[in-house]
Amino acid sequence: MVEGFTALYIFMLSAFTGYEVISRVPVILHTPLMSGSNFVHGIVLVGAMIALGHADGTLELVIGFFAVALAAGNAVGGYVATVRMLEMFQTGNKGKAQGETA
């Protein structure tokens, strides 16, 4: 069980991590990165599955169904879109990073 201050610590440390991890991203990767982080929050799928898993009654089942379908769409769409974008950087990839964003 994640609770109380432990939860707050996790929250704080994750927030700093997210900030640090992308702080040196070159401009050319901004769109793919936005798409990639969009994919990462597709992890909401596991939550949606659990919500639907313990849903009782028609209304909860319907909402749960939407939750899972939307979350799966987020994850799959985010993944395919990101991969498609990044594949374009593959050919002739010399790994030249552009300057940092202002």
Partner: peptide, 21 residues
């Protein structure tokens, strides 16, 4: 709410990196 650490961490990381972006 669901007591799911993967969601907490991934969500928060996206939240803060998205804010920076």
């Amino acid at each position: 709410v669901l007591d799911n650490a993967a969601m907490i961490i991934a969500g928060t990381v996206v939240g803060s990196s998205g804010t920076l972006l």
